[in-house]
Design a protein around this nucleic acid. Structure first.
Lengths: 238, 238
DNA sequence: GCATGATTCAAACACTCGTTTGAATCAGTC
DNA sequence: GACTGATTCAAACGAGTGTTTGAATCATGC
């Protein structure tokens, strides 16, 4: 029967951990649907039934894979943001500082001495566009607070940008971040251009922050034509 | 036995087309690995064996799903770029014009009167981060020329940005574009913020182009300190 | 020692998967 | 009409899936 779920699960030397690590790696390499429990348990050197014994189901396993990392990561983001806001003493932050609060915890995760974490980041970058129903349940829970707090900070930082416009720009920002986190494989998948230092997470944010900050601060384009009416069918060049 | 593959496949009223459309839609909703041939043939109202008869295998089917749309789309991008370059008469283009050449064909595809195309765009946005081996073969083939030509144009448009930096910014650009194309579902998956007019492709590029152009034009950050050393732990406010 | 409960293990379960088969159906040509 | 080749169809194939089972193993407390 399933364990009583006492504190940090004393028993089981590390099989639960080994399953989590193997699942993390394989989900990253092959995606969720394409990764079988047999492949996971083989890589983790545990019995097949161990997954259902410790986690209950495959879906519960992937949920735990994300919960384990995403909780601390997003909490670190909130903490970072709160700290710089406190240091600013009530004055609005720069977009750069806000982005830094968003991205730095990611870098710290990637520095994890055990080399885990980096794997998870690439998994996360991919998960953002995975259509699996599980993601549609797991991710919003973890991200709700983060998004709301950062949106709030950006609204204060960029009072000249209308809120709707800012929400859009946050979308674009998330897209670029997710893509960057997905790592070199996904990157060179399209561009076929060599990039140097794609593994160095610090180098990535050193380039990502100025790029995104400039986008966030960009002058707001004039609304084309009438605002509410559909500028729809076959209206050709401006 | 398989058809002789004559011109536009005369016979078969439209079963090949119906299969492609159903596959496109279902791959978009559920991803490649999670979509079964039985689900596809059921939605297309054709026999299960029709897929292997007309396409040979599931993998060949998805390959054709992408080939059919990606070829014309990227050719339109190249044509658009060639046209504006010709109009510029040898002078460098603005980043905005280059982005416009990249994005406008997407919008035209989304205007497809039969409402197809829009579905494909969301599929494409997701495919960019699918780990399936098929993608790693299909996408680079279609994108190689596009990426090289646009990189060339951007290098001319932004002579002050080092080439390596520009390649990185192109990566970020692709990420934001892919994310935006993935549609409202994927967008609101994280942000939980309502966005108005998420369906209007024209509205998206009206917001996306200024955002990305500003990022591409951003001042190049100074290389931080010594290149290799970690500017690490707990360095507080600047 | 034995008893207890957690954990592992090999084996099987019921199911779905992509693919194949061989007969049936349909379109054309002679 | 009969013949031919393309296309559809129902049925099955073997492989692989997530999950369950029940006995074996282990650690621990008495």
């Amino acid at each position: 029967m399933p364990p009583v779920d006492r504190e940090p699960t004393r028993g089981s030397p590390d099989t639960k951990e080994r399953i989590l690590a193997a699942a993390e790696a394989l989900f990253m390499e092959q995606g969720y649907a394409a990764t079988s429990l047999r492949a996971i348990t083989a890589q983790a050197n545990v019995n097949l039934a161990a997954v259902n014994y410790h986690f209950g189901s495959k879906e519960a396993l992937i949920r735990e894979v994300f919960d384990r990392r995403l909780g601390p990561l997003n909490q670190a983001r909130l903490d970072y943001l709160a700290r710089v806001e406190f240091e600013a003493g009530g004055r609005p932050l720069t977009p750069e500082k806000i982005l830094e609060a968003m991205i730095t915890p990611v870098v710290q995760l990637s520095r994890d001495p055990l080399k885990r974490g980096a794997v998870f980041l690439r998994l996360l970058g991919r998960a953002l566009s995975e259509p699996a129903d599980t993601m549609k349940q797991v991710l919003p829970i973890h991200y709700r607070d983060v998004v709301l707090r950062f949106k709030e900070a950006l609204v204060r930082a960029l009072p000249d940008v209308p809120e709707q416009e800012l929400v859009w720009r946050m979308h674009f920002t998330f897209g670029a971040m997710a893509y960057a986190m997905a790592g070199n494989d996904a990157l060179q998948l399209i561009t076929t251009c060599e990039v140097e230092g794609a593994d160095d997470a610090e180098a990535i944010i050193r380039r990502l922050v100025p790029f995104l900050a400039a986008g966030l601060k960009a002058p707001v384009p004039l609304p084309m034509r009438t605002s509410t009416a559909h500028p729809t069918t076959n209206r050709e060049a401006a």
